[in-house]
Design a protein around this nucleic acid. Structure first.
Lengths: 199, 199, 199, 199
DNA sequence: GATGAATGAGAGTTCATTCAT
DNA sequence: TATGAATGAACTCTCATTCAT
């Protein structure tokens, strides 16, 4: 059982790795099962032993890529300086998003959200956690007098999330962008913004 | 001639309208020519009298939706208060983006950018203009002492653009969002941010 | 009436000329009515005023190209030296066949014969006349003792015709062939052959 | 592996057989994949497991039909009597060409030559070999004093090839022709011709 | 007479999924 | 477990022909 379980997860891993490469190149829709099969050295039929359908592969990748971020961000909830916690969350997120070929993968996921209920639910769940984290820190910042008390926390969560999603789109369209410089500017802007918010 | 030209553009309009409806429902890739044909009451073959291929329809829609924004924004370059000009540009853009079923359409376009050279060029051209506009106003703001002289203008253009693209993604995922409240928060944030930037 | 008749034949001529150019480039099947229409500066619909369908164009061209040969060859029936008459018929035919882009056009016709009854009948009628001519001259040669009396005239007619049809195919496959040298060899061969046939 | 390879070639064979039947009836262009699929009892999609596109089927048939001839002809290069070798080559070729429904198939191939580069190359390669064979024998005949030394060998190769291609066309147009009688006449003519060529 | 918009059937090809081996 | 053959529906696009203007 343990052996078979391990084998299963190894095989799943091979499929997912291959699928990511394919998806980065051509997107979800333009990638056929045959292409994935060739990329992971399996037969088409065999993939169906590990994933019930193509969509399940997409979902697994979405799950993986989104959930990798959570454990990294969660600890920052208790950051001594709540504003700095927020800044760090945004920086870590943008770094994860912009690493390697990730933007293309995130973009595919973003595009899939409106058409695919499972992907949508996955993303909304992640977003809920992400925004809860931001809200928690913003509330702490507010109590510490670092944020104007009339700030609309929900809307701010939306816009901080938008910054990340928009960065994905921007990086896809201009892959040669100087990413460190852009990150720096984000950090600077966020700090300036939260400083401005001092009560 | 005039008659035929008018007829042509009417028919093209009918196709584009129908295609937009279809694309909003299922996205570009999941919409077949047959579906568009049925939606506009034409035969499939006849659509090809007005558009050389499906992609041309997508391009025309992209062109239309992107270029509708430009003439509205351009005059704001000369706004008396450059910071307020920036805020207005962002607000008008977000309002255009979030109107009706637009978010879904913009999202499809965003997703098409990495896969489709023509769409990408169209969008990059628009972005160039948009960012030039922002940069112009930011420079004016800088000269007027409303923006710190060490601000990285290019990076800021990127992030302001990201805010819009991200809003598209966010609105697609959560269509029931309170759009006016979210807009208000954006305006408030931007003003607060630029005030903070006072040299 | 006379005017309209003249106009009709002028228009038909324009269509046929354009169609020949198109057919030479892409063959009958790969040439669309739209292509012909563009090539002769008419609308698609207007062509249908002069030809009931595409096939009729092909037929008219076949008729034209085949029947141009007949009046040239016919007089040779009375050539003083019947063997030389045969040689001249073959030479004139091969010259007509190999002129300009004709091989391609003849080839298309040849290929159409098995699938198209009208074309087939047209060609068979021409062949009947052509072979009757050859047979007449061969009979004269036989009587003059220039051809062995046991010669199978019908079969020889077939093979002389085959030489021409085969030349078409050969010229299509190798358009850079030295045509005059090839013609010369044909004449030499035919003369040698008929000399050998002396009773 | 051996099993799968065998199955593959069996299936390919079934497709080719069915395709030949269809092509003989309607020609390459007028035969749809659906028709072939029905004729070989497969689904359309499955044919694409064995041939990457319709053209590949045409090519395979061309290859098959042309290459069946080569091994039969090649040994005649060493025939004791070179003239008789030539005659035998022509007779064997014409017999192969005229067997069953072959003329129709050869005709389709001939017609495809000017439009289709792959087919053209296939045929030209075969022709090269065929003409090399003829030339070799003609040279031997020349050395043996059986052929006039001023004979244009290349041109003669062309005309012997033309005889075969022309026979294809002739047989397509008149399928009821007495083939043995026609063959006999060819043999007689060739022998008479080469006798006449004695130096 | 002339236009070109409109049709509808059919072309070749692709693909997620199933299933016998 | 693993294979890849098989399916069938869907895809985009083409084309000869008709017809209202």
């Amino acid at each position: 059982m343990a052996v078979s379980t391990q084998h299963r997860s190894e095989q799943r891993g091979k499929v997912l790795l291959a699928a990511r490469k394919c998806f980065v190149r051509h997107g979800f829709h333009a990638t056929g099962m045959a292409e994935i099969a060739k990329a992971c050295g399996m037969s088409v039929g065999n993939i169906y032993h590990y994933f019930p359908h193509k969509n399940a592969i997409v979902q697994a990748i979405t799950d993986e890529i989104r959930s990798r971020l959570a454990p990294v961000l969660q600890p920052l909830a208790d950051h001594a300086d709540p504003v700095e916690g927020l800044v760090q969350i945004m920086l870590l997120s943008v770094r994860e998003i912009s690493a390697g070929t990730n933007p293309r993968l995130w973009m595919e996921i973003l595009a899939e959200v409106p058409r695919n209920k499972v992907i949508r639910d996955l993303c909304l769940a992640f977003d809920r956690d992400f925004q809860a984290l931001l809200k928690h820190l913003m509330r702490r910042a507010m109590h510490a007098g670092q944020l104007a008390p009339d700030t609309d926390l929900d809307a701010n969560c939306f816009w901080l999330g938008a910054l990340l999603d928009g960065a994905i789109a921007g990086l896809c369209a201009r892959p040669d962008l100087d990413r460190t410089r852009t990150e720096l500017a984000l950090a600077q802007n966020l700090r300036r913004f939260f400083h401005a918010g001092r009560a």
